[in-house]
Computed example of a mutant assay.
Amino acid sequence: MAKTQLNVRVDEGTARAARERALARGMSVNRYIEELVRQDAGEAGRAFVEAAADFMKQYESVFAEEFGKEREGRGEGRGDAAREGRR
Rank of each mutant, 00 (worst) to 15 (best):
F63K: 00
F55M: 02
E35L: 10
R19T: 08
E35A: 04
R19V: 08
A22E: 02
R31Q: 13
Q39R: 14
V37R: 02
L6G: 01
A52G: 00
G13C: 07
V37H: 04
G13M: 09
F63M: 01
F55L: 06
G68I: 13
Q39E: 09
A17R: 13
L23M: 02
A44R: 15
K3C: 04
Y32I: 03
A64R: 14
R46C: 02
S28Y: 01
E66F: 15
S28P: 05
G77D: 08
M27K: 05
I33Q: 01
E43K: 07
N7L: 01
M56N: 14
E72N: 03
R21E: 12
V37P: 00
E72D: 13
A47V: 02
G13K: 11
F55P: 00
G42Y: 09
R74Q: 05
S28L: 01
A2H: 10
E70K: 02
D11Q: 07
R38A: 03
A15Y: 11
G73S: 06
F48M: 07
Y32N: 09
I33C: 10
E12G: 13
Y59V: 04
G68T: 09
A53L: 13
R21G: 01
A44T: 05
I33T: 07
E50K: 15
V49P: 00
R86F: 07
E12T: 12
V29Q: 12
S28G: 06
R86L: 04
E70M: 02
A18E: 05
G79Y: 13
D40Y: 11
A22C: 06
L36K: 02
E76C: 00
E34K: 05
A41V: 11
A44P: 01
E43R: 13
R71M: 13
A15I: 08
M56K: 13
Y32K: 02
E20Y: 08
A82E: 04
M1H: 12
A18L: 11
A15V: 10
A24H: 02
A51R: 12
M27G: 03
A15L: 14
R71K: 03
Q5N: 11
R38L: 10
L36I: 06
M56S: 08
R21H: 12
R9C: 05
N30C: 05
G42R: 12
